[in-house]
Design a binder for these strands. Structure first.
Length: 362
DNA sequence: CAATCGTGGCG
DNA sequence: TCGCCAAGATT
């Protein structure tokens, strides 16, 4: 029987791989430039990292460009209207990020003289910056030897060491492994290399192990099937909730909108009037629950899947002769693009007014 | 610790 | 078609 020995994992092969195969991304300084001492703007790094939380690179790109163009410096963002930031963030999801983004920019502007803290600890104390983002900004923007662990790194590490403990219980162990592997030189490139590797080679399904710089040191590859890692705790079922949404349009082409509560689901975002979203179909999901009496007509059902439940929203539409006193405000349909409307609300409006948006999905 | 919190793309 | 999941943070 042949014994296949495993190399001890080290940063060097990964960094060499990164020099050849790194992705070019709008918020990134190429490794070549970085080698000449060019550092990425901490504001750019922070903005991209917050946007990238649980969000794909592809989805982030246009938002990143839009934000930088509109608010070139962190002090510009700090001085912006929160409503404008929410509207610019609309569609990207996890809206607490946008509220915290604004708070963080304000804290940097007022408490740190417009300059980001350059340590993991200092960054970690800011709104919306958790363990991952603090380490990522510290390593990438400030060359700190911080252990960066995101979903990509968890996958790479779990395979490299064939960790059978399920997530999230295995995180502390994984963090130890990452810390031991993180080099004093080029810690930012190392972190980005781990994430690029996870995104392009060490993928969740059908990883390209033959191209991996760790192929000689991966325990999962040697012992079993890398695709079996990371082991994850079983997830719960997704319940269904029901509700109704009401699209009232005046003869002048204005629609009734209102603001959601600051906290909770879609916090601080704009919506059309809706009922509560409940577990069962009842009177609250019919036209009887409308914000005011009108000739409400059914406009079908919108199904929207959130992280932890599926929403089935009955859509009702009414033509209103004159503006009716109600909570909220009347907004020209031609100005809906500028509103802080989350995707589910755009879907609801598009169901009632097909031409409301240039691009309607659903 | 477990639950909450969006959306879109992809196998 | 549908489950998975993506550079997580907060409570």
């Amino acid at each position: 029987m042949t014994l296949i020995t495993l190399d001890t994992p080290s940063a060097k092969p990964l960094l060499d791989w990164y020099d050849r195969h790194h992705r070019d991304l709008p918020w990134r300084i190429s490794p070549g430039m970085a080698a000449r001492g060019v550092k990425p703007d901490p504001y750019h790094v922070w903005l991209s990292e917050v946007m990238l939380q649980q969000t794909t690179v592809q989805a982030v790109k246009p938002y990143f460009e839009k934000f930088l163009q509109r608010w070139p410096e962190v002090t510009d963002l700090a001085a912006a209207e929160t409503e404008a930031v929410m509207a610019a963030w609309a569609g990207l999801g996890y809206y607490a990020r946008a509220r915290n983004l604004k708070k963080c920019a304000e804290a940097v502007a007022t408490e740190h003289g417009g300059v980001f803290p350059d340590t993991e600890e200092g960054l970690r104390s800011l709104p919306g910056i958790g363990d991952y983002t603090a380490a990522a900004v510290a390593a990438i923007a400030f060359d700190r030897q911080a252990a960066v662990m995101d979903g990509n790194v968890e996958r790479v590490i779990s395979r490299l060491y064939a960790i059978t403990t399920p997530l999230p219980a295995a995180k502390p162990l994984m963090k130890e492994k990452v810390a031991l592997l993180t080099p004093a030189a080029r810690p930012g490139d190392f972190a980005q290399a781990m994430m690029d590797l996870g995104a392009t080679i060490c993928t969740p399904k059908r990883p390209a192990c033959s191209l991996c710089p760790f192929r000689g040191s991966c325990e999962a590859l040697k012992l079993s099937d890398p695709e079996l890692f990371p082991v994850k705790a079983a997830k719960k079922e997704k319940p269904v909730r029901y509700g109704a949404a009401f699209i009232a349009v005046t003869g002048d082409g204005e629609i009734l909108l209102r603001r959601r509560a600051e906290s909770g689901l879609l916090g601080g975002m704009t919506e059309v009037p809706t009922t509560a979203w409940t577990a069962r179909i009842d009177g609250e999901t019919s036209a009887a629950a409308a914000p005011f009496e009108a000739a409400w007509q059914s406009a079908g059902t919108v199904i929207h899947v959130f992280t932890h439940f599926e929403l089935r929203l009955s859509i009702w539409r009414a033509a209103i002769a004159a503006k009716i006193g109600a909570d909220g405000w009347w907004e020209p349909v031609t100005n809906l693009e500028a509103q802080a409307l989350p995707t589910v609300m755009k879907k609801a409006i598009a169901a009632a007014i097909p031409l409301a948006f240039k691009t309607s999905k659903g």
